[in-house]
Design a binder for these strands. Sequence first.
RNA 1: GGUGCCAUCGCCAAGUGGUAAGGCCGCAGCCUGCAAAGCUGCUAUCCCCAGUUCAAAUCUGGGUGGCACCUCCA
Length: 466
Amino acid sequence: MYIYDSVQKTKRKFIPQVQDKVTLYVCGPTVYDDAHLGHAKSALVFDLLTRVLRANNYDVTYARNITDIDDKIIKKAQEQKKEIKEITNFYTNAFHKEMDAIGVTPPSIEPKATESLDAMFALIQKLLDTGHAYKTDEGDVYFDTASDSEYLKLSSRVQDDEDRQERVESSSLKKNPADFAMWKSVKDESITFTSPFGNGRPGWHLECSAMIEKHLASPDAKFAVDIHGGGADLLFPHHENEAAQTRCGTNHTLANYWIHNGFVNINGEKMSKSLGNSFFLKDALKEYDGEVLRFYLLSTHYRSNFNFNTDDLSIAKKRLDKIYRLKKRLFGLAQNTDATPFKDKLLTALSDDMNVSEALALIEDMLSVANETLDTQGKHKVLKKETIANLAFIETILGFGIKNPFEYFQFGITTQTKKKINQLIRSRDEAKKEKNFELSDAIRDDILAFGVSIMDTAQGTFWEKV
RNA sequence: GGUGCCAUCGCCAAGUGGUAAGGCCGCAGCCUGCAAAGCUGCUAUCCCCAGUUCAAAUCUGGGUGGCACCUCCA
């Protein structure tokens, strides 16, 4: 297994701290709004990573947090005159539902900020005790970046105070403009949490360090986790600050390997909440099967920037269709999980920093060989058995082809329409039997008008949503 | 202004020192009553310039053109 480490900027052989066991932590969503395609991409990348690790026989503990304390959540709660919990529960549930729709396996642990306050308090206290943090007269607690000689090494940055001072609204009470809040005191009426440091709420970066310490880190481990991941924009300041807190407040370095996934752009522009061009996952799921979105978002290497457009999405559908068509040809045959050369090659490709492009090329080749053999030697039992094992492995490791192949091709078609289509197909079959091709072709046009295509096979006539 | 990433066929996209994967589209053919699906065949020397090397898309230097981060962000 090889992983590109985005901090060392090189591909490294993956060696976990404890043999056969992997700890993985990924920064999850702040639950104040619907998930967009970028959230989907990130979740898919780390879903694939855990699948590949598990296929390599690693016992993976995968934690992805839910940030349910945040200024934006509080703001939304106040605007809508709702309890914070009401907001966070709603979006957490929506997130889970949408992740399920694109085939993302739930993480092993899903810690929430609201359930990790004790761990956060402990970390703040430790950093105060060791002189890495200080409390201001206003009641805020800041991390003292000057006390950490390693600060900014993670993101390979150089300190640029002058610039930062201009750009960041800096509190005069901070010792250094780069210092970041771990605890923000709150004086107004907004919802606050009680802490040994007064009422207020935690800084964003704190929760990840605290949760990792609480749920994943072994007491004497050199690294708190084997792998830490998230979107490329999190490297600075979020991960830099997390790393500083863990380095100074615990006896380990935060992570051995860092993985940062690239962005999803729309029309060449970064999709972001502030730009207002977000494509929400829930909207995409109305138009497309979740698995098509999964295939599309995973079809480009995880580190590349990804330019979303519907043309490429429909190409992704065509490619996924091919997997399902082969499944249709083998429908109803006994499952098996035999070892095959194809499975070895696929695992090797994906174990090389998740080379999905190579994996897809291998799949295309496997599909061609299987289809060709089925065309010419329909009773080739060995080929059928092997192909079924191959398809099952594609399902397990990539999550492609998990549905009933007939239902897959009926996405978005209502029961009523299905009935009508089936009636028309029966009429057409009769016309064909009577060699009345003029009539049968006319009926076919009627069927095509429903936005489906039909195909005559030895097993009968089938239709597919285009 | 600082830091970093990228530039491969009409489009999407691997490959990162050994002589250009795959997909879409297109063309030709097989199959089909005709289609659809499936199958077969065909289509690039890698942004520009210079250098290193027996050998470079892959390394180095210089251009040009995109993009990202430096502020909440997956």
